[in-house]
Amino acid sequence: TGEEYIAVGDSTAQQVGDLTFKKGEILLVIEKKPDGWWIAKDAKGNEGLVPRTYLEPYS
């Protein structure tokens, strides 16, 4: 379980453990880390770190 967020920009994984996503994708945020990198899952079930500045709450 988690909260749904929509990507407001494209982000390409810079290192192992990062999640690549495109603008408009809905991501499920699993954990919000205080350093600004959140753990999220995409629609295909891929999981990784995403920069919170690229996400907005999805409603």
Rank of each mutant, 00 (worst) to 15 (best):
Glu25Ile: 03
Thr53Gln: 14
Leu27Lys: 00
Gly45Gln: 03
Pro51Ser: 13
Tyr5Cys: 04
Ala40Val: 14
Phe21Glu: 00
Gly17Val: 05
Val16Pro: 14
Thr20Pro: 10
Pro51His: 15
Thr1Tyr: 13
Lys41Tyr: 07
Val29Thr: 01
Thr1Ser: 12
Lys32His: 04
Asp35Thr: 07
Glu25Gly: 03
Glu31Trp: 11
Thr20Asn: 09
Ala7Asp: 01
Asp18Thr: 15
Ile30Phe: 08
Ser59Pro: 12
Tyr5Pro: 00
Lys32Trp: 04
Gly2Trp: 14
Thr53Lys: 13
Trp38Glu: 00
Arg52Gln: 15
Thr53Asn: 13
Val50Pro: 03
Pro34Trp: 08
Leu27Glu: 00
Pro34Gly: 10
Tyr58Ile: 10
Lys41Thr: 07
Asp42Val: 02
Pro34Ile: 09
Tyr54Ile: 11
Ala43Cys: 09
Leu19Met: 05
Glu3Leu: 09
Glu25Tyr: 04
Ala43Asp: 09
Asn46Pro: 01
Arg52Asn: 14
Asp18Ser: 14
Tyr54Glu: 09
Val8Asn: 09
Gln14Asn: 12
Glu25Thr: 07
Glu47Trp: 11
Val50Arg: 00
Leu55Ser: 00
Ser11Met: 14
Ile30Trp: 03
Asp35Pro: 01
Gln14His: 12
Asp35His: 05
Ser11Leu: 15
Leu28Thr: 10
Asp10Ser: 09
Ala43Thr: 11
Ala43Tyr: 09
Thr12Gly: 09
Gly2Asp: 07
Val8Phe: 04
Leu55His: 01
Gly36Arg: 02
Trp38Ile: 02
Glu25His: 06
Asp42Met: 01
Ile39Cys: 04
Phe21Lys: 00
Glu56Arg: 11
Trp37Ser: 08
Gln15Asn: 14
Gly45Val: 00
Asp10Cys: 06
Glu4Trp: 15
Glu47Gly: 04
Tyr5Asn: 01
Pro51Lys: 13
Lys44Asp: 12
Gly9Ile: 15
Asp35Gln: 04
Leu28Gly: 02
Ser59Asp: 12
Tyr54Phe: 13
Arg52Ile: 11
Ile6Met: 08
Ile6Cys: 06
Ile30Thr: 07
Tyr58Arg: 07
Arg52Glu: 15
Thr12Asn: 13
Pro51Glu: 14
Asp42Ser: 04
Asn46Arg: 08
Lys44Phe: 14
Val16Phe: 12
Leu55Gln: 01
Gly2Val: 09
Gly48Ala: 03
Leu55Trp: 01
Ile6His: 03
Gly24Leu: 03
Gly9Cys: 15
Trp38Val: 05
Tyr54Trp: 09
Gly48Lys: 02
Pro34Gln: 10
Lys44Gln: 13
Tyr54Pro: 02
Gln15Trp: 11
Lys23Trp: 05
Gly24Met: 03
Thr12Pro: 13
Asp35Ile: 03
Glu3Val: 09
Gln15Met: 12
Phe21Gln: 01
Leu19Pro: 02
Thr12Leu: 11
Asp42Pro: 01
Tyr5Asp: 01
Gln14Val: 13
Gly45Met: 03
Val29Cys: 01
Leu27Ala: 00
Lys22Ile: 07
Gly36Gln: 04
Lys33Met: 09
Tyr58His: 09
Gly2Met: 12
Ile26Phe: 05
Glu47Ser: 10
Glu47Leu: 14
Asp10His: 06
Gln14Ala: 12
Val50Trp: 02
Val16Tyr: 10
Ile30Asn: 02
Gly9Phe: 15
Val29Ser: 00
Ser59Ala: 12
Val29Trp: 00
Lys41Met: 11
Asp18Met: 15
Leu49Trp: 11
Asp10Ile: 03
Gln14Phe: 12
Glu25Gln: 11
Asp10Leu: 02
Lys41His: 06
Glu56Trp: 08
Ser59Asn: 13
Tyr54Ala: 13
Val8Asp: 02
Glu3Asn: 08
Lys22Thr: 07
Gly48Cys: 05
Pro51Arg: 12
Ser11Gln: 12
Ala13Thr: 11
Pro51Leu: 14
Val16Leu: 11
Gly17Ser: 07
Gln14Arg: 11
Trp37Arg: 10
Leu49Glu: 06
Lys23Tyr: 06
Glu3Ile: 09
Leu28Tyr: 13
Lys23Asp: 03
Gln14Thr: 14
Leu19Cys: 03
Val50Thr: 03
Ala13Met: 08
Ala40Trp: 02
Leu55Asn: 01
Ile39Glu: 03
Pro34Thr: 11
Lys41Asp: 02
Asp10Gln: 05
